[in-house]
Simulated scan of single mutants.
Amino acid sequence: MTVSTLVSCSVVICAYTTERWTDLCAAVDSVLTQNVPVLEVLVVIDHSEELFSRAERHFAEQTRVTVLHNSGSKGLSGARNTGVHAARGDMIAFLDDDARAEPDWYRVSAAHYSDPDVLGVGGFASPVWPADRPVWMPAEFDWVVGCSYVGQPTRIEPVRNFIGCNMSLRRTVFDAVDGFSDGIGRVGKTPVGCEETELCIRIRAHQPSAQLLFDPAMRVEHRVSDDRATFRYFLSRCFHEGVSKALVSDLVGAGDALSSERAYTARVLPRAVVTGIASPRHGGLARAGAVIAGLAATTAGYVRGLVGLRSKRVTA
């Protein structure tokens, strides 16, 4: 496929804190230096005047970069929707402010859109740890730090949903199913998520023939900050993932919301525990314990989320 036949691409990068300034600049630079140029980069600042002013000044001379205020509700969903509304490309890609796209990121993703049934493409995210990878951290739980994990596909194939730091969607999707749902997703440092899961499920419900593809060649590096490399954050993120899954279940039904998770907990996690126990000298026992603790925390969060939703209905 030639460059001229690739769909045009708007890249949305959302940011909320000056603490990630260096990461944000690196994320934008990784998009601007793609082997095939993207149409534009939309940097959406989530309710931080200090960060907005700094970004506006810094990117003033970059003709392909536009800095925007989040005009929606505070949080990642509102910021992404702001970027979507401003985007001019036929394909809208999303990159986290602490991720860096590899040079062929756009071309790999865009090539799939020659098939009209392909409405979205997600890719692989590898963690960049602050030091060595924690010995207790099971690769099956790398989703905790927003990265690809053991249990995901290893080749191009359809998936239910993407990892939010590395995904693209056809622009027409948002005309058909609106945008990311308010009330789901990260707000500041609160470690919730699932906004992209809920959106992808809505896309498939609207158009059952839609193809949402995972392509491991669409790669980014996702930096893991010091605070996210701790066991405390691990448990907190797992718990809030459970809460988020309860919200998604309430919106789209548990059948769709938990379809991937059932296979993951039935096959991937038991195998991880067995593997860990079999290699105790290399941190295996710690990883096996983390798998059990992570599953327990996620389950507790899910139950807490369901109880909270029922309580709201009773008092409404």
Rank of each mutant, 00 (worst) to 15 (best):
R313P: 03
V268M: 06
L68N: 04
R57G: 05
A246T: 05
A293F: 00
K312Y: 06
P153Y: 04
R281T: 12
V145G: 02
G294H: 04
R313V: 10
S259H: 10
T230M: 03
M218V: 11
T275A: 15
K189H: 13
V44I: 06
L39K: 14
A99R: 00
L251A: 14
Q34C: 10
F214N: 04
E157S: 09
D46K: 04
V173Y: 02
C238S: 13
S8I: 10
L247I: 04
V31L: 07
A139N: 13
N35Q: 14
R223F: 11
P103C: 05
G164I: 02
G284K: 05
I92C: 02
V7I: 14
A131D: 15
S259F: 05
L309D: 07
L51E: 03
P116C: 01
P103D: 07
L269W: 14
S260F: 13
S279Q: 13
M1G: 15
V145D: 03
K312N: 13
D215T: 08
T299Q: 11
G283L: 06
I277L: 15
Q62Y: 13
C14L: 01
G301D: 11
F180G: 04
S114G: 11
I163R: 07
F52L: 13
L95Q: 02
T172C: 11
R20P: 01
N70C: 11
R219H: 11
K312E: 15
V274E: 14
S249R: 00
G123L: 06
D227I: 06
L213H: 03
D23Q: 12
A229W: 02
A266Y: 02
G146E: 04
P191G: 08
F124H: 15
D182V: 00
W129G: 02
E56I: 00
L24M: 08
D90R: 12
R271M: 08
R281F: 12
T275V: 03
F214G: 02
W143M: 08
S148G: 09
